[in-house]
Design a protein around this nucleic acid. Structure first.
Lengths: 246, 246
DNA sequence: CGGGGAGTTGATAGGTATCAATGCAAGTGG
DNA sequence: CCACTTGCATTGATACCTATCAACTCCCCG
């Protein structure tokens, strides 16, 4: 299970990776079964907590898939206030924000030690000229991102009350871990309370209070950044509609 | 220059339309100058206020560009509560939400009498097999949508206070009208106060109060759905976000 | 062992939802 | 042409929720 800096990711990683439709399209298996990964996935890159994967205004040249770890994306408004726009975990794609303007529109900072697969975009385009499936898969990935963003708006805006927003956030995260084949009821929150509060547009104190209240209500169980969802159904319910009770 | 039900949209409409990169790629001019529009733009469709352009779960077959009018998109959560996810005005694209799953993910309802150009997606794909520019333009349109969604999240979530959210909403709309070459300081709000409140996650009474407060503060001037922005700078300031990014 | 950052808890003020009533405009039928 | 209806918008009073300020605890790391 080696994964040095320039190696090809081992098969387990690629199978569980949500980017595999991109860098491992089925049809390519027939065309170039042995060297295809090496052709598209340039390398694995290792990053330490707090490192930038890319910055706003950096030239766009690559797409990234997270092999292990997590990343937060942020944006600095003209008012100078930093706004976190999303969190990304293992198996998720990053960097598509730069395609249109050929410059990255957001910052990507790792939340912990993280490895990413680098997919050079020009090679992807080149490949897509010969193989339509590649471009189609790319489209699929992108539309799923649009979809995710829609749901994001939905869950955050729809929940003007703090408990709903947080519940929704936790449920969404749970779903994403489950999509990776990991436990959906118990996981590690790589981001700080402050990051969560920024992302949800709430005060960090409110997040703190909600965590303890959720625990009092038997919805969750947590110790620092480790969290266990005890009642997924009630949480989803909270996320769904604002209940005046309590 | 007629534009009856099945005709090709007249050149003015297409030039001002944001979809023209899609249905009128430059390179195609050389290949099939005369009949190209007819080949891709299937028809113009006329809709009355309240009509559905498409519904959640409808089979996805077409993309739409709004020639004239406006459309709101919405989504019904698992709790049965309707959430408005966006508003779309002349020159904007609709329907991309269905690409991935081949089914539309949201509802699209017209806010007034509206005409749309219909772009059959399979023809677009077919065309893109021969001409890479088409698919590339499609990608560009989609990424700009992702970008727009990011900004959407940014401006709504970042503005937990109601006045900022509404100011941001008005500024964004102003920018979009300006992008169409229309007046940026005076326009018609096709959606109801209730729609706005739903979209911004506020109570409709709050929207009402804010409109009058903005008027008292000399920021805007309005009569029913007609609105004039008197102080774009202060509004942008309130929104926190702002500045027509160039 | 001490310092500092992150997280928690408490008191208070302010903003917004909610409930309720009224105003207003367009459409309908007598 | 006018009363009536209906839906949408506005305005007011009150209660609740959350931001803010401040103090404190806990954990990590030097």
């Amino acid at each position: 299970m080696s994964a040095s800096a320039n190696s090809i990711p081992d098969s387990y990683t690629c199978i569980s990776c949500r980017a595999n439709k991109l860098c491992l399209p089925q049809c390519l298996d027939d065309i170039c079964p042995s060297d295809m990964r090496a052709r598209i996935v340039k390398q694995q890159r290792l990053l330490q907590r707090g490192d930038y994967l890319f910055r706003e205004n950096d030239d766009f040249q690559e797409i990234y898939a997270i092999c292990h770890g997590s990343i937060k994306t942020s944006l600095i408004g003209s008012d100078g206030i930093l706004q976190i726009t999303g969190f990304h975990i293992t198996g998720e794609i990053l960097g598509l924000d730069g395609i249109e303007k050929r410059k990255h529109a957001i910052n990507a900072i790792t939340l912990e030690t993280t490895t990413v697969c680098v997919i050079p975009y020009n090679q992807l385009e080149e490949l897509s000229n010969r193989e339509n499936t590649v471009m189609r898969n790319l489209l699929a990935v992108m539309t799923s991102q649009i979809d995710a963003n829609q749901n994001e708006i939905m869950s955050v805006v729809g929940n003007r009350n703090a408990s709903g927003a947080l519940a929704s956030f936790l449920c969404a995260l749970s779903r994403r871990y489950a999509a990776n084949g990991e436990q959906e009821t118990e996981f590690y929150l790589p981001m700080s309370r402050n990051d969560i509060s920024n992302y949800l547009g709430l005060a960090k104190e409110t997040i703190s209070r909600l965590f303890t209240r959720f625990e009092d209500d038997g919805l969750i169980d947590f110790y620092q950044k480790q969290i266990r969802l005890l009642n997924l159904k009630k949480l989803a319910n909270l996320a769904g509609h604002p209940e005046p009770s309590r």
